[in-house]
Design a protein around this nucleic acid. Sequence first.
DNA 1: CTGAAAGCGCTTACAG
DNA 2: CTGAAAGCGCTTACAG
Lengths: 342, 342
Amino acid sequence: MATSTLRKTRSTGRPTLEEVAQRAGVSTITASRALRGVGSVGPDYVERVKAAATALNYVTNPAARALASSRSDAVAVVIPSISNAVFVDVLESIHSVLRPRGYEVLIGNSHYSRQAEEDLIRHYLASSPGGLIVSGFDRTESARRLIDASGVPCVHIMELDEAAGVHCVGFSQTRAAQAVAEHLVSRGCRRNAFVGAQLDSRTMQRGEGFREALKRLGLYDPDLEVLTPSPSSIGLGCDLFRQLLQRRPDVDGIFFGNDDLAQGALFEARRQGIEVPSRVAIVGFNDLAGAADCVPRLTTVRTPRVEMGRVAANLLLAMIDREPIAQPAVDLGFELVVRESA
Amino acid sequence: MATSTLRKTRSTGRPTLEEVAQRAGVSTITASRALRGVGSVGPDYVERVKAAATALNYVTNPAARALASSRSDAVAVVIPSISNAVFVDVLESIHSVLRPRGYEVLIGNSHYSRQAEEDLIRHYLASSPGGLIVSGFDRTESARRLIDASGVPCVHIMELDEAAGVHCVGFSQTRAAQAVAEHLVSRGCRRNAFVGAQLDSRTMQRGEGFREALKRLGLYDPDLEVLTPSPSSIGLGCDLFRQLLQRRPDVDGIFFGNDDLAQGALFEARRQGIEVPSRVAIVGFNDLAGAADCVPRLTTVRTPRVEMGRVAANLLLAMIDREPIAQPAVDLGFELVVRESA
DNA sequence: CTGAAAGCGCTTACAG
DNA sequence: CTGAAAGCGCTTACAG
């Protein structure tokens, strides 16, 4: 058969660029350029190549492309948790802008471990991804150096840093916590507690912002800070609330570092017959699912998760395409949503 | 310089297998075999190669490996939603067994669309992944054919199918729903409703199992089936519960297709002063976060999400390694967790 | 605007 | 047990 001469020994069976080029009657490289839309190719050629590709059901072999160009169509996103709805929302948002642009989104879950994050960053950087998105700024020096040395475009999400050369999209965790403190105090709470779990850098920043604001208002009581390294959850919220009220029955305002803790507290309060917000006001963080519907409806801080993912992905895209960056650090703000619990 | 002869024109700067081999004083292919642990290589050689790789900080270029072997170290997982905690749990579990084995887990989110799923499957199959994990069996004929024709090992999760040649890990949605129906009836509920959202195949199977069981018990009332294509959420649970009780105030048992709907119903019941379970019993599905802590604590069906991910990933690994498969269809069962709401 | 040649960094298939 | 050669399917760099 005439076609048998085309068959390569180790062929995968799928059509190659060469076959597309042959069918279109052009050279392989012209077909490559036509399909990628780069370089100058005669419009008639472009059309013929595209037609041939469609007819053959051609799909670029990503491995071959990556090897030849030493640049992959992958973007790695390293987050500390995949169970925390906060990151899932951001991820989904990043996904929705990157996938349509042809990027593969690789998800690295560090489980809140600095060492695991460093390993993941090393792993992903090893395959020369098109871009990298990481969470916050709390990482090992090695990880930081790996990112710098790689030259791979990198966007930081969740937090803000004005340092030159750092690209980030987030909001001020500190200011958000201050807003919560001011709200609690303005509604008359005098003994305000902060309850934080996981102890990741963002939770700590919230604690700090809360503390600073209370100090400024002359209402800070170190005995009302409850911190635990356990992962945040509704069940933990129940426990911490119960313990806190047992130890300090005089507390009249509580700021929880995450909504799930606050929702747990609401359940526990109900079980113990403790009125919210009249006896103790409760504020959460993030405005996760259920916050608007629970009883009483939860007062919380709405964080810009969807927008953060979208803006970060677009910023990364601009960096990858070497477009000029108007604003390397984007503050998306937050919103205190006052409902019934405080 | 002597080393300049080693420098390739388009080098990426990272060490290559050739450099490792050179340092170890062996051929490239021997280094390749030593590092992969395949073929027969003298133990002393293996040691020297590994030492050289470590010294050079060598990391295999995945694109080159994939191109040469026409087989990638990626496993694609296609799920219908990334916001639904059910899939996040399974995903995390799959991740935890595949990543340590060197696989990259690619996540495809079909957003419950058959067409989107087909496109994702086509996309992932195009890059010859090592394996594929898909959710359930409800997909387009094209998607099914693509999977079959690809020859890529594929495991189905969430549901069960006894069909020969199909590898799956899940549990019977139907039987789980039957157990719920029997529980409600056994505790005295006579007018039992089913409330399902999203209308994905698993929700429909639950509805069917529930209906069949009630029919068998002579208690089926078609007017008590509430179905909506809206995505499942706590807020939707509030709405559907309110509407149902307005329309059929005599209902005394409700089975919600997912815990979030049930939790919403619990909130709404509280707001309306409707006693649960004395006036109406409520059962959820999946035993998601919060089910054990809400008020009243939710009676629900615990689904084996973590185990499902683990078993599916290991089954896939066995298929990839062409090991004999003892059991192509694994039924992991479920557990009715009776708490306070029913 | 178009193309022939070389190369990306591995692994397969074949020898010995 | 070890290796020289060829090839995977693209893109880069250089010509014309």
